[in-house]
Computed example of a mutant assay.
Amino acid sequence: MTAYVIAESPYLDTPEVRAYRELAQASIARYGGRYLARGVLPEALEGDWAGDHRMVVIEFDSLERAKSWYGSPEYAAARATRSDLGGRRMLFLPGASAH
Rank of each mutant, 00 (worst) to 15 (best):
A50G: 11
I28T: 07
Y31P: 04
D61I: 01
A26G: 03
D84K: 00
G47Y: 04
A50V: 06
G39R: 13
G71K: 06
M55R: 14
M55H: 12
T81K: 15
E43P: 00
M55F: 10
R82Q: 09
Y20S: 04
A50P: 11
P42Q: 14
R38S: 06
G86K: 09
L23N: 11
R89Q: 14
L91A: 14
A37Q: 13
S97Q: 13
L91S: 05
G71Q: 14
I58A: 05
S27R: 02
L91K: 02
L36A: 08
E16I: 01
S97A: 12
A66I: 11
G86S: 06
R21Y: 10
S27G: 05
W49P: 08
D52C: 08
Y70W: 09
G32L: 03
A26P: 02
G33L: 00
K67G: 02
R34A: 15
F60N: 04
G87T: 14
G95Q: 11
G95K: 07
G32V: 00
A44W: 03
Y20Q: 02
A50Q: 10
G32P: 02
E46V: 15
G32R: 02
G71M: 05
A77I: 06
G87F: 04
R79C: 01
A50I: 05
L85C: 12
V57E: 01
A80R: 08
A24P: 04
D48K: 03
A80T: 13
V17I: 14
L85G: 09
A80Y: 09
R54Y: 07
R89G: 10
E43S: 09
T81D: 09
E59K: 01
G32I: 00
A77K: 15
E64H: 07
S97D: 13
S27C: 05
F60I: 03
A24R: 00
S72C: 02
Q25A: 15
Y75M: 03
E59W: 00
R65N: 11
A24T: 03
L63Q: 15
V40M: 13
R88D: 04
Y35H: 13
L85R: 10
G39I: 12
L45H: 12
A50L: 08
I58M: 11
E16R: 03
G47D: 06
R34H: 12
G95R: 07
W69H: 08
F60H: 04
